[in-house]
């Protein structure tokens, strides 16, 4: 049975509602949300509360539940 989650873009406050299957990976979620906002998926990480959701994990393995709120967090890099 598909799950519905809300993904928030922490930089803009925008949100998307997504429908997932248990076999979808976290990377799929990041790519889906980043693609919707025309962002580079590789520059973000996804959190659920205090937990980092790791890219290769499936939704089921990561313990993502129906109605969860997830947040896309920028992962910047600085140089001098």
């Amino acid at each position: 049975m598909p799950l519905r989650v809300k993904v928030r873009n922490a930089e803009s406050g925008a949100t998307v509602d997504m429908e997932l299957e248990g076999e979808n990976t976290i990377e799929d979620i990041i790519e889906g949300a980043a693609g919707y906002w025309e962002k580079d998926a590789g520059a973000y990480v996804l959190r659920r509360g205090k937990r980092l959701l790791r890219g290769q994990q499936t939704v089921a393995e990561a313990g993502v539940l129906n109605s969860d709120d997830l947040e896309l967090i920028p992962d910047p890099e600085g140089g001098g």
């Binding site: 406050g13 925008a14 949100t15 998307v16 509602d17 429908e19 076999e23 799929d28 790519e31 889906g32």
Partner: peptide, 13 residues
């Protein structure tokens, strides 16, 4: 398996 489906998007006011 299909990729995640984006159902709806909202911007802040």
């Amino acid at each position: 398996m299909r990729p995640p489906l984006v159902l709806d998007g909202k911007e802040i006011q």
